[in-house]
Design a protein around this nucleic acid. Structure first.
Length: 478
RNA sequence: GGCGCUAUCGUCUAACGGUUAGGACGGAGCCCUCUCAAGGCUCAAAUACGGGUUCGAUUCCCGUUAGCGCUACCA
């Protein structure tokens, strides 16, 4: 039985790298019919925040990929401590009474000194027990085999056989002086306790895995399969971080700017994984079917965002493709909240008429606000009168086009084909090109040159609005 | 610094010893056309470098370089 877990720590918002790790775990679970487990790794009391926890749920819910079981590490401390006690009992760990250092990374780097504190490692058991009994605080450190050193080995499903000498592994802490387990201990204890079959996580843990193998050995349990994923990088080559790269690394940003959840999922799947058949657009079930560890590659992938253009062009393209593939009603429904967020009033019937006109013109749902504004506003946003002047024409021509247009439009029923016939005839009568005829009317009605096809637009806007806006344009030119 | 991992177009990737090194996004151009899109067609664009192994290396091995990760009583 495959059991996989996504184990975020609630110390920041959910970022896209975490989302991808979740997705790969989910795909593995669904592909194999196994269980997807969400485990909140909250053993660092000082850094956990409720806001972060909420951000994780928010992001995960938006992805719409459900998990089957959920745990919090903070509710499983007994298990962790049992593991710690057991390891101490076997003398595979020792108490370190050295006061915690305040700063990270200020350890002595001299040869070997970073590996362990000799006095603590060699403290007699009696002395250690005595000091502990007196209440002196201590951290519990794993007694990494030295003298003789040995080679730690494991196989990673993506990176292959891994080996490292214990001479290169420090005596890492498994229990803090406040009694809380560290990540290494809690993670291993829970992976064992929850019967995790595959650990699918970011490559940043590849080096840590040697420590984990040591812990599993000490606890006398067989380690799960390891599956490390290449990391997601920023275009500047740095690891993605909110501090450096801003909200573009947050899942909720994609949601708020109008990505379809599946477009986002599809995009993330393509970073570091390939179905190897040149397919790029895959439906959810197709992703599940195609997923395999063999398709995961080993080099980090860059999320190609820029400051002026915060989303990877491929993600945007996928989103546009999916927008166009969506049933019209569903698109209209998804668009509604973005129209409202932009401060416009509308309803489903109107949305249903507007949607077909803009769906090929937006790449993000949010763009509905700028692509369809003139459908929702009573008064057009101000525009320059010169916009009304057609190619190879002047204001006088614009004026006559608008007057003629008004005349031609007044009597016809506002239906696409009739509108087109009327305006084409008008152009004929004025002896001008159709483009010169249509453009001033388009600007008069939409307030700008680039807009959806004219006749469909007129039809949706209706006679009153169209004639009124053309009149206003005529005034503008006079 | 030590240890680990990685290296194909700008980006995501395919090619698991023999290909004109393929696809996609993005870019450029053309077509279509009432504008903008969408769509169609075309083009430019890569095996980091140096050694091996081999009849033959993108592919295997070694080195160099570069990047990333770990080296916290963070995860």
């Amino acid at each position: 039985m495959v059991r996989v877990r996504f184990a975020p720590s609630p110390t920041g918002f959910l970022h896209i790298g975490s989302a991808r790790t979740f997705i790969f775990n989910w795909l593995c679970a669904r592909h194999t019919g196994g269980a997807m487990i969400l485990r909140i790794d909250d053993t660092d009391l000082g850094r956990n925040t409720e806001a972060s926890l909420q951000s994780i749920y928010e992001g995960l819910h938006w992805l719409d990929l459900a998990w089957d079981e959920e745990y919090k590490q903070s509710e499983r401390l007994d298990l962790h401590r049992r593991y710690a006690a057991q390891i101490l009992e076997k003398d595979l760990a020792y108490r370190d009474f050295t006061p915690a250092t305040m700063e990270e990374g200020d350890k002595p780097r001299e040869e070997g000194a970073w590996l362990y504190h000799r006095e603590m490692r060699e403290l007699s058991r009696g002395e250690s027990d005595r000091r502990a009994a007196q209440g002196e605080p201590f951290a519990l450190r794993f007694r990494v085999p030295r003298d003789p050193e040995r080679i730690i080995r494991f196989r990673d499903a993506v990176y292959g056989e891994q080996a490292k000498s214990t001479a290169d592994v420090e005596d890492f802490a498994i229990l803090r002086s406040d009694g809380m387990p560290t990540y290494h201990l809690a993670s291993c204890a829970d992976d064992a306790g929850l019967g995790i079959s595959h650990i699918i996580r970011g490559q940043e843990h590849l080096s840590n895995t040697f420590k984990h193998v040591l812990i599993f050995e000490a606890a006398g349990v067989a380690p799960p399969q390891f599956v490390h994923l290449p990391l997601l990088m920023a275009p500047d080559g740095m690891k993605l971080s909110k501090r450096k790269h801003g909200p573009v690394v947050s899942v909720t940003t994609y949601r708020d700017q109008g990505f379809l959840p599946h477009a986002f999922v599809n995009f993330l799947c393509l970073l570091g994984w390939s179905p190897k058949n040149d397919r790029e657009q895959l439906a959810r079930q197709e992703l599940v079917d195609a997923f395999s560890f063999e398709g995961i590659n080993r080099s980090n992938a860059v999320v190609n965002f820029k400051e002026e253009d915060p989303f990877d062009p491929k993600a945007v393209w996928l989103n546009a493709e999916l927008i166009r593939a969506l049933p019209m009603e569903e698109l209209a429904e998804r668009l509604l909240p973005f129209v409202a967020a932009a401060g416009f009033e509308t309803d489903m019937p109107k949305m249903l008429r507007v949607t077909p006109l803009i769906r090929e013109r937006i790449k993000l749902l949010r763009e509905v606000a700028t692509a369809a504004d003139f459908f929702f506003q009573e008064e057009l946003a101000p525009y320059d009168a010169s916009e009304l002047v057609p190619q190879k024409g002047d204001r006088a021509l614009a004026l006559s086009v608008l007057r003629k247009g008004c005349q031609a439009l007044s009597p016809v029923s506002f239906e696409h084909d009739l509108l087109e016939a009327a305006l084409r005839t008008a152009a004929d009568e004025l002896k001008i090109k159709t483009g010169q005829m249509f453009q001033p009317i388009r600007v008069a009605v939409c307030g700008r040159k680039n807009a959806p096809p004219l006749f469909a637009t007129l039809e949706v806007l209706g006679r009153n609005t169209c004639l009124k806006r053309i009149q206003q344009a005529i005034h503008k030119l006079q």
